[in-house]
């Protein structure tokens, strides 16, 4: 049976992706970052040994190295990697001429977690992925990564970090596609946040549930196409976003 590693799987989309992959018969290595969320443990109990929570802070190279060691002790290969973990950019709306001066450290953190973290996960899990049969790399980006369609006048930490992720994915694609890897870059839509008890926070009726986005994501993450050289940012409706 195939297996997959998902980062940031404690709740929200990451947890929903884990559930979806389990439903297809995959073994799931689920990155655990939050200690006070019990949702992943509950899913592990349901999964009958096919879900392995793995401590993983993608901001820390040492943590990713340790996670790779732990996964290596459980399997000799990885078929797919889903980079989902993200730092949302802090509570206040970072903007030029905002109420607060721009916080340099939080700018750096956004890139370190959302872009460099994804890059280092690929790098450090590559020896396992090389031995997998699928060689599928999936990245959760966002509509806010698009420079062409950017309309916001604030929140730039999170948005720019997703643009940085996109270029890192392009460069990974340049190196790894010729080596048999295929890529998915996904914009999951505006989703309701998941609270510690599993309930969803509804801020707006236009928001969608992570379960629905995850179903569409995993359908795309596990399909195969005749034109795998194409790299596109595709959303949960199947629409293509410009960069």
């Amino acid at each position: 049976m195939p297996n997959v590693l998902i980062t940031g799987a404690d709740r929200g989309l990451g947890l929903a992706l884990a559930r979806e992959y389990l439903g297809l018969g995959y073994t799931v290595f689920a990155g655990r970052y939050l200690r006070d969320y019990a949702l992943l443990d509950a899913l592990a109990r349901e999964a009958g040994g096919r879900l392995h929570p793995i401590e993983l802070d993608v901001e820390s190279r040492v943590s990713i190295q340790e996670a790779a060691r732990q996964v290596s002790s459980l399997t000799d290969h990885l078929d797919a990697l889903v980079s989902n973990a993200a730092y949302m950019g802090g509570p206040e709306n970072a903007r030029i001429r905002g109420e607060e001066p721009i916080d340099e450290e939080l700018m750096l953190k956004s890139v370190r977690v959302n872009a460099l973290g994804a890059l280092q996960c690929v790098e450090l899990f590559l020896p396992l992925l090389d031995k997998g049969s699928q060689k599928r790399l999936c990245f959760i980006s966002s509509e806010v990564s698009s420079v062409s369609l950017m309309q916001r006048d604030g929140d730039f930490r999170y948005c720019m970090s997703k643009t940085a992720l996109n270029i890192a994915v392009r460069m990974l694609h340049n190196t790894l596609a010729p080596r048999g890897y295929s890529f998915r870059l996904y914009q999951p839509g505006w989703m309701r946040r998941q609270m510690p008890d599993g309930s969803l926070l509804n801020r707006d009726d236009r928001q969608i549930n992570a379960d629905d986005s995850a179903r569409e994501a995993v359908r795309r993450f596990t399909d195969s196409r005749p034109d795998e050289a194409r790299l596109e940012l595709v959303d949960y409706l199947g629409s293509i976003w410009p960069y």
Partner: peptide, 10 residues
């Protein structure tokens, strides 16, 4: 590349 792409968006 990452710094310049992020600069485009910022």
């Amino acid at each position: 590349a990452m710094s310049k792409a992020a600069l485009s968006q910022a």
